[in-house]
Design a protein around this nucleic acid. Sequence first.
DNA 1: GCCAACGTTGGC
DNA 2: GCCAACGTTGGC
Length: 153
Amino acid sequence: MASKQYWLLKSEPDCYSFDDLKRDGHTEWTGIRNYTVRNMLRDTMQKGDLALFYHSSAKPPAVVGICEIAGDAIADSTAWDKDDDHYDPKASPDNPIWYARKVKYVKPLKSPISISKLRETPGLEGMGILKKGSMLSVTPVTEEEWKIITKGT
DNA sequence: GCCAACGTTGGC
DNA sequence: GCCAACGTTGGC
């Protein structure tokens, strides 16, 4: 088994916040409708990987906590739910197209790190989240970046 | 298979 | 609410 990998999961707190995850304990990370993200989530992630929980479109946008990839890839059944916001008419139980992962609450950061703070921090310049125009809701995080961000928590 | 048009994302 | 950047779509 390859060594542990690190990720950053982006969510709008109005949609699903880190506090929601704390309340629930775990959740299914569904609604991914981007092929790059799907491939990472389905093929590259491993059960037991750790992830940063990032609040996008928040005031301010920030990394707020830590969670864990708690299961293997599973078909995203919201894709064939007509009432779901992320309904995809091309998906079906026989051809799921989209996948999800179970994610488990771990703990909050000692204090949230805003995007402007991330930009100012040496060693984090290369983070996917900071790239202009990055729209990926899941991005890999290096061990180095992970250590800097979670130091002291 | 090219590429322009369009929709979406997300920081500001 | 603006707008730059990106992914996706669809006509050809």
